[in-house]
């Protein structure tokens, strides 16, 4: 049901399916030292998005409770809803570390990597990793 509403609001940026733009915006708002206006967000996104698309996505994220906003000049400045200084993250990690069954029910993107695995990975993805870190 969430997917339908994503698509309807992103006519031009259809390249990014299902909330990828939201994740991108959330990521850069988290990285920013202060709240950002839609113009600043657009600037940091650096793509060919329309200003109105960014405003739409930001206000929708605000409606969903992902962002807080405060009036700055004529626009709103948006900041991510603080995960109460990482308390949720810490709690989740404690829960997962305490019980192997809790870990077994969730699907981690990445499992542990040995030193050999790491080298192999670097070998396989040689050209693709240089931009990352």
């Amino acid at each position: 049901m969430a997917a339908g509403e994503h698509e309807s609001a992103e006519p031009a940026g259809g390249r990014r399916p299902g909330g990828a733009l939201e994740a991108e915006i959330l990521g850069l708002l988290h990285a920013a030292p202060q709240a950002l206006s839609p113009g600043e967000v657009l600037e940091r996104l650096g793509g060919d998005l329309a200003y109105s698309t960014v405003v739409t996505v930001l206000s929708r994220m605000h409606d969903k409770g992902l962002l807080t906003r405060a009036k700055r000049g004529r626009a709103y400045a948006y900041a991510p809803v603080a995960d109460a200084h990482g308390i949720t993250a810490r709690r989740m990690r404690q829960v997962l570390d305490s019980d192997p069954d809790r870990e077994a029910v969730l699907s981690r993107f990445i499992s542990d990597l040995s030193a050999d695995d790491e080298q192999l990975l670097r070998q396989m993805l040689d050209g693709d990793l240089t931009d990352g870190q």
Binding site: G19, A23, G65, A89, M92
Partner: peptide, 30 residues
């Protein structure tokens, strides 16, 4: 564990499917 995970899923902040947690350690899970 599944019931507990269901509770956690319901209690995590926000109402979107995606939850971003403030944590410098890289982590992603469903």
């Amino acid at each position: 564990a599944l019931v507990a995970a269901g509770f956690e899923a319901a209690c995590l902040p926000g109402i979107d499917e995606l939850v971003v947690l403030e944590d410098p350690a890289p982590e992603a899970y469903a």
